[in-house]
Design a protein around this nucleic acid. Sequence first.
DNA 1: ATCAATTAATGGTATATGCCACTATTGGAA
DNA 2: TTCCAATAGTGGCATATACCATTAATTGAT
Lengths: 152, 152
Amino acid sequence: MSQTTLPGLLLCNNAMLRRATRKLGQFYDDVLAPSGIKATQQGLLYQIHVGNEPAMGAIAAALVMDLSALGHTLKPLIRDGYVETFADPADRRIKRVRLTPQGRTKLEEAMKLWHVAQQRFEETFGKEQAASLRAALDEIAALDFDAPPAAT
Amino acid sequence: MSQTTLPGLLLCNNAMLRRATRKLGQFYDDVLAPSGIKATQQGLLYQIHVGNEPAMGAIAAALVMDLSALGHTLKPLIRDGYVETFADPADRRIKRVRLTPQGRTKLEEAMKLWHVAQQRFEETFGKEQAASLRAALDEIAALDFDAPPAAT
DNA sequence: ATCAATTAATGGTATATGCCACTATTGGAA
DNA sequence: TTCCAATAGTGGCATATACCATTAATTGAT
């Protein structure tokens, strides 16, 4: 079975995280495929949906994503007519984002498939385990590496 | 603080995984920056290093990565002279990969920085917690979504 | 009011990754 | 042997994501 699990890989938190992300991403994308959008796009549409016409910076912060990366990621969604942007009237530096009617429709369609993927994953991995994994991942996303570790 | 943690995001295993990956990737990349290579590249060099002149397919399988994606990722490393490939004499379909002397040097350099990143992360996140996180991530990477869930 | 510092977003460039179509080899069946 | 099916990689195309330099708008200090 070759060297699927070598010491180094297993020890690197970052490598393990990326590897699991590839695996899960492929799975969710696979299930989402019939909708024509990727899991990342579904997640982004959802984030825009639940936000109140969020500013790009707010979305980027919520997703712990680089602002320019968000801009790039948004382009195909704008091109395909699922999302539109508009300048904040009070501060024209700020660009807000919202779903178009087609975007809302597409999101609904994708959410149905998302539920399927989500359920199939938790069925296989374990619902409890998934919940504690998400909690750990949430912690990581919130870490502040600049600050010295709090004395526990 | 806006809506940094909305219900949907927190519930999607895939989105949470990606978000944490972005965060941790930025951190490891940051620490690795002085070496001139990214954390993904360090991981790949290491994987090649520990493999015995591994075939591309073997690397891809170990990393749960698409074979063509691996090919693309390898290009900058070959271009920069850290890695070289050669056809397997017994089966010319197979292309094997190895580090060049510069590749070995670069890997050593990067590994020192990797240790720093690794330690700083675990210091902040918790060593135990990191270990169980990696275990969970390893499980995910090994999942088989095609098979019906084993009756527990 | 004026102008420097700050903030928000864009565009360029580069890596990370996936899927698909295609090519080159191999291996096995007829 | 011959030929088809399976295997291993490549190349093209598209999205995901980061960093940097630059531009547009604001804000705050003088």
